[in-house]
Design a protein around this nucleic acid. Structure first.
Lengths: 324, 324
DNA sequence: TTGACAGATGTAACTAGTTTCAAACATCAT
DNA sequence: ATGATGTTTGAAACTAGTTACATCTGTCAA
């Protein structure tokens, strides 16, 4: 900036005024400074601005992985909306490890992010202490709980799981096995499983498998061996559902004729499996847009955002057979 | 830092020395400063550090979208590797629009990113001028061309397309229709199409469709009407292949009995379609890891990285029928 | 002609750190 | 006791901007 000032024959204060456009600068001076800026390709340092304003216009997203369409689709919408609000998105993956999440959160805070987008409301004590200490705005997504200390923008996971269950019940299924991801590290999964467990009248069986296509496909073998009367599989994640579908086909079992499958997530690719997968649609795009808007407003105004519930919906396709 | 210094009864210089750990500080002073840091929850400002060192430890990734597993899977590996090298990843989506890409690149540069990861080697003049002017390290991915002015870390797209073609030829197909994404905005697609066009002996027919599941599914209708003798569809993206697969199934055409499909990308979900999709595997995970390592080294040392070619491989599954 | 006022601009202090240089002090050999 | 050396430490200058305050200039009315 000193160079620009020298070239334009003005003080740095005047250059600063031209850059910010806030206070009055005479027409001729303005032009002279502008042309000096052009000539020197001057771009102000974001760091120097940040040091003065305390603003970095960055927000951090802490997600388990990008390698699941449900998160990347969400982040796609989030990034788009954040950019429109003038924020940049710094992404950090946590592999569902709370300690790693806290570590990455600290890194991002040191970097200067002004807010966080996280998944779910359960985090390590270190993380909770961190955001309490720095009073960082945080929006917890993929979860809805108006009572949570974290502001949630998302859907009711229990409701989503029950929509899948209700669909199976409506189609006449009662011998149902539930396949979920690990509940220990994932509160979204836990809420889904708990909602299903509360239906004690149904004698559901529960199985945990990794949220991984190949692992889910392999898990089918053991499952089929032990649960011979099962007519339907309720998979609490579409990645699991797709893996299970492939596993069943490998075993020569026909879906939905011999066994029905329902998923939760409604990934785009779930329309292209054969048969197309019936799944509970989660509004991740809208969730990204809303979370971005709320976090941006929170950061700008300092007033905590209000929680927001988004609705899920059963997308019935052809992986569930109607029993007589 | 002034507060810490006052509390520890030392100068800010000493606190700085303790923080950086570079120069010698006596044991007792060190302990005193440490405890003052603890007591005050002192975290140094990244902006202030950046202003002094010129280092932000941020790199920007410019990708068309996160909403395609091929990119998000790549970014997942990229983020992991970058974090290990001490860099944070700022993501910006461009929607394959070169002007938007240049705009977002300027934004990220203003933010202070020290390097870029981009897709392909074709960018707007604005973008080229930008990186030339700032001498920003850039690694172009999903592309390999040792002659390109941009350093490429990726695969040979022409080769990948020809692997798919060779597979079809080996399986006895000659009446082949090629479905690609838009070539105008995507040099990876263009190279793939050009490689296939160079096989003039084969009388391939070419069709452009959006890289979108639903659009590809719809495009099948027109295609089937005009190309009755076609025995195989070569899709230059798995998203298209999956859409086409669903579209054919909707029309009641059986794959691979009546028509064969081969894709390029080998998305994880391509294993779970029915039939499982034969596709050319692109090593995006390794690409992410390698690109991160090379960009990090480039930034640290100032020496431009060497281009790197990664190998693709035909993953034959069951969507291609062997013709007699 | 003087005073009041607005508009334009510069000076210098400020943001939060790092780094250079010099000074203070301790240790050791002569 | 002296000088040489090495270890700690602080003062102040530096990074790249913003901003409060003071100053200068010009216009207009009294």
């Amino acid at each position: 900036m000193r160079d620009v000032a020298r070239r334009a024959g003005v003080s740095v204060a005047t250059v600063s005024r031209v850059m910010s456009g806030s206070s009055a600068v005479s027409h001729t001076t303005h032009a002279r400074v502008r042309s000096a800026i052009e000539a020197l390709d001057f771009v102000p340092s974001a760091a120097a601005r940040a040091i003065n304003s305390g603003r970095t216009h960055m927000v951090g997203a802490l997600v388990p992985t990008l390698d699941n369409a449900i998160f990347s689709s969400f982040l796609d919408a989030l990034e788009l909306a954040l950019a429109e609000h003038g924020f940049s998105l710094v992404v950090a993956t946590t592999n569902s490890d709370p300690e790693k999440e806290a570590q990455r959160a600290q890194d991002l805070l040191n970097l200067g992010v002004e807010g966080f987008i996280v998944s779910g409301i359960t985090h390590s004590d270190t993380f909770d202490a961190l955001i309490r200490r720095y009073r960082t705005p945080v929006i917890a997504t993929s979860y809805f709980d108006p009572e949570s200390p974290l502001v949630t923008v998302g859907y009711d996971n229990g409701e989503a799981a029950l929509r899948a269950l209700d669909h199976l019940l409506e189609m006449g299924h009662t011998a149902i096995a539930v396949l979920s991801g690990p509940t220990a590290t994932n509160d979204r999964t836990r809420v889904r499983v708990d909602a299903l467990r509360s239906r004690r009248d149904l004698a559901l069986t529960f199985h945990e498998v990794p949220i991984d296509f190949v692992a889910a496909a392999r898990a089918v073998d053991g499952l089929v061996a032990q649960a011979s009367g099962t007519t339907a599989l309720l998979c609490l994640s579409d990645v699991i559902a797709q893996g299970v579908l492939a596993g069943l086909q490998r075993l020569g079992l026909r879906v939905p004729e011999q066994i029905s499958i329902v998923g939760v997530d409604d990934l785009p690719s779930s329309q292209s499996t054969w048969p197309p997968l019936s799944s509970v649609h989660l509004p991740v795009k809208r969730m990204g847009t809303c979370a971005a808007a709320k976090l941006a407003r929170w950061i700008e105004t300092g007033e905590a955002a209000a929680p927001l519930k988004l609705e899920t919906e059963m997308a019935a396709r052809r992986s569930v057979r109607r029993l007589p």
